[in-house]
């Protein structure tokens, strides 16, 4: 049996997103060049929520994009199935932008490495800021977040699950600890 612990309920998640938006603005980006890019899948939903907050805080209309990193992954051969390639939308053009790269959980750093490669293939941004909801440690690549709402130390048999209303019908963040008999999450 896996054991589930509530890391954030709905209110805590909303508060964490408020803090993330403030954290992004504390880095003093040029608001006119700011753009949000969510990493498929949950990074996109979180980017949308951050957009609402940033638009309100700066009285602006921050462009938002979606990034699919499938073709840039370095672990494709180790996956059990062939992931479907998702669409990337960066209609605003990344050239000269200050991009906020958004993902739900930062773990090994491999996803972010792939995302950085993907973005620079679309142009040369002025700056990329990494904003994540949960930093769960255990990095394998030297990548650190600029903004992280929560930092926790986790073990390899644990997993952080971000559940969002529009995708999962519920809104909270769980820390799941796998029992010895469970083979996967």
């Amino acid at each position: 049996m896996s054991e589930k612990k509530l890391l954030m309920d709905k209110e805590a998640l909303a508060y964490a997103l408020d803090r993330m938006a403030e954290g992004i603005l504390a880095l003093k980006p040029d608001v006119g060049r700011l753009a949000l890019v969510g990493i498929r899948t949950r990074g996109i939903n979180l980017a949308e929520r951050l957009k609402t907050r940033l638009d309100h805080l700066c009285q602006c209309d921050v462009p938002i994009g979606a990034l699919d990193i499938t073709l840039y992954r370095d672990d494709l051969s180790q996956l059990a199935s062939q992931p479907l390639v998702g669409e990337t939308h960066l209609a605003f053009g990344v050239e000269g932008r200050e991009i906020v790269l958004v993902d739900d959980v930062l773990y090994t750093g491999r996803t972010v490495r792939a995302a950085l490669d993907a973005i620079v293939h679309y142009g040369r941004p002025q700056r990329i800021i990494l904003a994540v909801l949960v930093d769960r440690g255990n990095r394998e690549y030297p990548i650190q977040p600029d903004v992280a709402a929560v930092k926790i130390e986790t073990a390899p048999n644990q997993n952080v699950q971000v559940r969002l209303e529009e995708l999962d019908g519920e809104e909270h963040v769980l820390l799941v600890t796998k029992g010895p008999e469970d083979t996967h999450f």
Binding site: D68, L71, Y72, L76, L84, V85, G86, E87, T88, H89, E95, D117, A118, V120, H121, Y122, G123
Partner: peptide, 23 residues
Amino acid sequence: ECVLHNAAALKPTLDQKIKKMPT
């Protein structure tokens, strides 16, 4: 349908500045 789905996702990459992926 799997091929067509992936092709649809790949088509916008033909307009990237650097039209190359490391796959």
